[in-house]
Simulated scan of single mutants.
Amino acid sequence: MQPDGYHLAELNIGRLLAPTDDPRVADFMANLDRINGLGKRMPGFVWMMEGSGEPGTGNTENAIEGDPQLVSNLTVWEDVTSLERFVWGTVHKQFYERRAEWFELLGKMHFVMWWVPAGHEPTLDEALDRLDHLNAQGASEHAFDWAYLADAKMWRSHGCMPVAAE
Results as ranks from 00 to 15, higher is better:
N73D: 15
G56A: 07
V46T: 12
V25D: 05
T81G: 09
E50T: 13
V25S: 05
V80F: 09
L74V: 08
N31G: 04
D27K: 15
P68K: 15
I64P: 06
V25T: 02
V46S: 14
K40H: 12
G58L: 04
R15Y: 00
E61M: 15
Q69M: 14
V46F: 05
V80S: 08
M29F: 00
L74A: 13
D22I: 11
V25C: 15
W77V: 01
P23M: 00
R15D: 03
F28Y: 14
P23T: 01
F28D: 00
L74S: 08
R15M: 05
D22G: 02
D22M: 11
P23Q: 04
N59F: 01
I64Y: 02
M42F: 00
A63P: 01
R15Q: 08
Q69R: 15
N36P: 01
G56D: 12
L16A: 05
D79N: 15
T81M: 10
G58I: 02
L38H: 01
G44E: 04
A63W: 08
G37A: 11
N62C: 12
N36A: 11
N73C: 10
S72K: 04
E54Q: 11
S72Q: 06
E84T: 07
D21Y: 05
V71E: 03
G66F: 00
E84K: 01
P55F: 10
N73H: 10
E54V: 12
A63L: 03
P19L: 06
R34P: 00
M42W: 00
T20M: 12
T20V: 12
K40A: 15
M48D: 13
R85S: 05
T75E: 09
D22W: 14
L16P: 02
L32R: 01
P23A: 05
P23W: 01
G37V: 03
E65Y: 10
A18F: 14
E84I: 04
L38C: 04
I35W: 12
W77L: 01
M42R: 02
T81C: 05
S72H: 03
K40W: 08
N62T: 12
V87E: 07
P68H: 15
P19W: 07
V46L: 07
D27I: 13
F86R: 03
D22C: 01
G51A: 09
N31W: 15
V80I: 10
V71G: 01
E50S: 13
E61N: 07
A26S: 10
R85C: 13
L83P: 00
T60E: 01
E54A: 15
S52A: 06
E54D: 11
P55D: 03
E65R: 11
R34M: 13
T60A: 07
I64N: 10
K40E: 15
T75K: 03
I64W: 00
N73Q: 11
R24W: 13
I64V: 13
N62A: 13
E61G: 02
T20Y: 09
R34E: 14
M42K: 03
N59L: 10
G37C: 06
A18M: 13
L38A: 11
D21K: 06
M48G: 09
G53A: 05
N36V: 08
P19V: 07
V46K: 04
L83A: 12
A18D: 02
E78S: 11
G56Q: 03
